[in-house]
């Protein structure tokens, strides 16, 4: 079945505009190609996708070799914000960029909801 990219894009857009302090989101393939993205200006979709894939694959390696199990989430915390990678299905990775002001608990909850929604579209 064809993946409904339009719907996926709509979910991302909605997620970015309706969640407080979220600056961007992208859904990418595990080999680093963009499926859909809503990113802050100046960020290159292809580059963001490739970086997400590289990060997730390394995370999964760490999970495996250092006995952390399968990876749900990778968290990058900088002094101006967060980058959070969530495994979405076998075929996609969900990246969220949020500002420093974001409330983490709330953010994770929103991500969880978006991922559930995205998963049904990716099946």
């Amino acid at each position: 079945m064809a993946i409904n990219l339009e719907k996926i894009s709509a979910i991302l857009q909605n997620f970015v505009s309706s969640t407080n302090d979220v600056q961007g989101a992208a859904l990418v393939t595990p080999d680093g190609l963009p499926l859909a993205a809503t990113l802050p200006g100046g960020m290159d979709e292809e580059r963001v996708s490739a970086m997400s894939a590289a990060m997730l694959s390394l995370g999964e390696r760490i999970g495996g070799e250092l006995a952390r199990g399968s990876i749900d989430r990778i968290y990058v915390e900088g002094n101006t914000g967060y980058g959070i990678l969530t495994s979405c299905s076998e075929d996609a990775v969900f990246l969220v960029l949020a500002s420093q002001a974001a409330k983490q608990g709330l953010l994770l909850l929103e991500i969880k909801r978006a991922v559930t929604e995205l998963k049904t579209l990716l099946q």
């Binding site: 393939t29 080999d31 680093g32 490739a50 694959s57």
Partner: peptide, 22 residues
């Protein structure tokens, strides 16, 4: 080898099934 192979979905797929991402 520690590899970070992922299934290729771009034009790489014509050449081989998986590709290094990190």
């Amino acid at each position: 080898v520690v590899d970070t192979d992922r299934r290729a979905t771009d034009e790489t797929a014509d050449l081989k099934s998986s590709t290094t991402v990190a």
